[in-house]
């Protein structure tokens, strides 16, 4: 079983030091924290917001920054009618404070020391913890071959698009594959359908190579891809999933 978190997880006041618009729906927040325990790629934090009358709302957000980074980066995608995500995407400004606790989660994590080729499968904002892994892969100089399959609705919904392209060029052991489910621009070279068995087999690694597979995104996508991976013959214990939400899809 994975490492134990022994210390209680306490709330801290994080200061927003920078915000970056990633797509029309998503924004990254760089946070500075008074005390930060080095996290592992794939972990998340809890964010707590408080109204003047004392009412609070709390949500989980994955950490996008690699363990090597000196600040904490979260990337939030706006959910229509959502309580918390529109606030984090549209209202929060540099200099604001947010209550944060973490890092949380010891299961959906990857460290460069782990063996086996890597297959990362993201749907929508499910890219966030996988981006922490891709960044960690590059910064740690890992030679473990890693493929990322990223499903988004349209090309301008692809979060971290430029950085992913750059990682794919600079990190010799890393490659990225996209699939668009709601139409592609002329000349699009990637896939143009929902993830299916053929795509997963094309992009992934044969079961004989014992790849580690991380799947993250809306619950229906995660369920579907995990079932396909089992069907292709991958071992249950090598498939790790993180489900972001009850509904939605890309």
């Amino acid at each position: 079983m994975a490492n134990r978190l022994v210390s209680p997880i306490v709330w801290q006041r994080a200061t927003v030091i920078e915000t970056v618009r990633e797509t029309p729906q998503a924004r990254s927040l760089m946070l500075a924290l008074p005390h930060w325990q080095r996290h592992r790629a794939g972990q998340h934090v809890e964010v707590r917001l408080t109204v003047e009358d004392g009412y609070q709302a709390q949500r989980s957000y994955s950490i996008a920054s690699p363990p090597e980074a000196p600040y904490l980066m979260l990337t939030v995608e706006r959910i229509a009618e959502g309580e918390v995500s529109p606030y984090l995407v549209d209202v929060v400004q540099e200099g604001d404070q947010l209550e944060v606790r973490g890092p949380i989660g010891g299961y959906f994590t990857w460290q460069a020391s782990q063996s086996g080729p890597l297959l990362l499968v993201a749907g929508g904002s499910g890219i966030v913890p996988l981006m922490a892994m891709a960044r960690h892969h590059a910064l740690a100089g890992s030679t473990t071959p890693a493929h990322l399959l990223y499903s988004a609705r349209q090309v301008d919904n692809i979060i971290y698009h430029a950085e992913l392209e750059q990682l794919a060029t600079e990190d010799q052991a890393f490659a990225v594959f996209y699939t668009l489910t709601r139409g592609a621009p002329p000349g699009w070279a990637g896939f143009q359908r929902r993830i299916d068995l053929d795509m997963l087999e094309d992009v992934g690694w044969p079961p004989a190579q014992h790849p580690l597979i991380y799947i993250c995104g809306p619950t229906p996508l995660v369920e579907a891809v995990a079932t396909m991976a089992l069907h292709l013959g991958h071992a249950q214990g090598r498939i790790k999933t993180e489900r972001f939400g009850p509904t939605g899809g890309s």
């Binding site: 006041r13 917001l49 408080t50 109204v51 709302a57």
Partner: peptide, 25 residues
């Protein structure tokens, strides 16, 4: 443990009293 801190500009959703729900649910 820090005091709860008011989040600038956050209003939260319209809340109905849910007497039979545990805190934060």
């Amino acid at each position: 443990m820090s005091q709860p801190m008011v989040s600038r500009g956050f209003r939260g959703r319209q809340r109905s009293v849910e007497a039979n729900l545990p805190p934060g649910q």
